[in-house]
Each structure stands twice: as structure tokens, then as C-alpha cells.
């Protein structure tokens, strides 16, 4: 549908995001609790949350800090996890680039998996009309606020949770909940299996190089499986492979 005013589009963007919040709030709570359990002050935990604005990178950074990784490894790993934003940026750029910088910079900062997923299809179909950026800003702003508030709730909950609850296991569980929807076919499954196995066997490499090695290995495995399947299926239906390559 097309919107008559920017405000209408913005509000509709906020509304579209609301059903996704139950999936976001637990991650935020876990992130806040972990930061406090690591001994960070509430101010520092929230500073980290505002600067990162990326739950998976933040949880990974916290886990690596707990394992005593060197700062460079933490920064590199967090940035590798966030590489996907380059892809999102490329996909949304045709619809946002014409705006002035006082808008593109804030809405780019607020780019997230959720608002990307909500907007990418609607943008390219053109159904949002000329207020598409307002709709996007609605989803992005609502997502930002949801995330900050749920981490804040975790920060204040953190101190009251006893160690015996083994809540640190919630971190790999959160990653698992993020991982599973990313497996959409043989190639992404291959990337996950190869990446995971290399990580298990390379865990003793210094400076957390095991994770970087495993990630690169997994990506190469995914690409190889994708091209093998493309060749094998070139005469049959290739829908599956194409869907995954998007």
C-alpha cells in the first residue's frame, strides 16, 4: 500500500516491527545479564550496547572477553560477524542514497537484520511509494528502542541471577536460535557443518584464530557446494540454489 504522509508510513513501519519483538527481547536480556556478570558497570554495558547496536557481535565479544581473548581478536571477530551489513547496505542503498546525510547516517546506524528483512522485499516491489524511507525509519527506530530497553532490563536483572543457573549457556543457545533459520539448503548447511567442525578442532590456536579460520573455511565450503550443485542441477530445477544465492 502507498502512504499519504511520511508520518503514516513511519507509524506503519513501527507497527510492522512489533510482532518481531518477542524474538528480540530474550537476546537483549541475555546480553545485559552477560555484560553485568562479566563485571562491567551498567553505564559501560549500555555504552557498549549503543556503540555496537548488534546483538550477535556483542554476545560474541562478551564471550571472547570472558575467554581472555586479546582485544584485536575481539574487534576482528565482531566485525566479521557484522560483514553482512555490507550486503544489507548494498541492497537498501538504491532507496535511501538520495536522502541528505542528516538522515542517511542515523538510519544507516540503525540498520538491523530485522528491519532489513522487513523492508528489502517491500522496497524492491515498490509497494511503499515515495514514503518508503519513512517506513524503513519506523522499523529501524522501533527495533533500536526495543533492543536498548531489553538490554537495559537485562543489566538490572543481571546482578540478581545466581551463578548456579548456568545462564552463560544461554549465549550458545542464542547463537543456535540465530543459526538455524540461516540454514536454507545444502550449501548453507555445509558452511555451518564445516565451520563448526574446524572451530572445534582449531580451538587451541592462539589469539582466537580458530574462529577466523573456521569462519573462512565454512564460507569456502558453502561456495563450493553452491557451485557443485549449480553444475549438477543446471538441467533440472535450480530454484533451490538460486533462492539461496540471493
Amino acid at each position: 500500500m502507498t502512504y499519504r504522509t511520511g508520518t503514516e508510513a513511519f507509524i506503519q513501519g513501527v507497527r510492522t516491527l512489533i510482532p518481531l519483538t518477542p524474538g528480540v527481547i530474550p537476546f537483549g536480556l541475555v546480553t545485559g545479564v552477560m555484560a553485568i556478570e562479566m563485571g562491567m558497570s551498567p553505564g559501560m554495558s549500555m555504552g557498549m550496547t549503543v556503540l555496537f547496536y548488534s546483538g550477535s557481535a556483542q554476545l560474541v565479544a562478551l564471550q571472547l572477553l570472558q575467554n581472555g581473548a586479546v582485544p584485536v581478536a575481539v574487534v576482528v571477530t565482531a566485525l566479521i560477524i557484522n560483514l553482512r551489513f555490507i550486503m544489507y547496505s548494498a541492497s537498501l542503498a538504491p532507496y535511501l542514497h538520495h536522502l541528505p546525510r542528516r538522515w542517511t547516517w542515523p538510519v544507516s546506524y540503525m540498520l538491523s537484520d530485522q528491519s532489513y528483512a522487513l523492508c528489502a522485499v517491500k522496497f524492491s516491489s515498490g509497494e511503499l511509494g515515495r514514503f518508503a524511507p519513512h517506513f524503513y525509519a519506523g522499523t529501524a527506530g522501533a527495533m533500536w528502542l526495543t533492543w536498548q530497553l531489553s538490554v537495559l532490563a537485562g543489566v538490572y536483572l543481571g546482578a540478581s541471577i545466581p551463578q548456579t543457573w548456568s545462564l552463560s549457556f544461554a549465549v550458545p543457545l542464542s547463537f543456535l536460535a540465530l543459526l538455524v533459520p540461516n540454514i536454507r539448503g545444502a550449501a548453507s548447511l555445509g558452511a555451518a557443518v564445516v565451520g563448526g567442525l574446524i572451530a572445534v578442532f582449531a580451538v587451541t590456536l592462539p589469539y582466537n584464530l580458530g574462529l577466523v579460520t573456521a569462519s573462512v573455511g565454512g564460507v569456502i565450503a558453502g561456495l563450493l557446494i553452491e557451485s557443485i550443485r549449480k553444475k549438477a542441477l543446471s538441467n533440472a530445477s535450480t530454484n533451490d540454489v538460486e533462492r539461496e544465492a540471493q
Partner: peptide, 29 residues
């Protein structure tokens, strides 16, 4: 090639975080 490779970054990175954390409950290997 880069945009194709970026598709496999999330499954690969996430799996390489999950598996060691599950298999080694006390950290390092």
C-alpha cells in the same frame, strides 16, 4: 563473488561459535 560469499558468513560464523562452546564447557579444548 563477494555477495555470494556473504550469504555464507552467518551460518559459518554462528556454527563456529556454537559448537566449541557446547563441546568444551570449561573453555579451551
Amino acid at each position: 563473488l563477494l555477495s555470494r560469499a556473504l550469504v555464507y558468513v552467518p551460518p559459518s560464523v554462528l556454527a563456529s561459535l556454537v559448537l566449541p562452546a557446547v563441546v568444551y564447557p570449561h573453555g579451551q579444548g
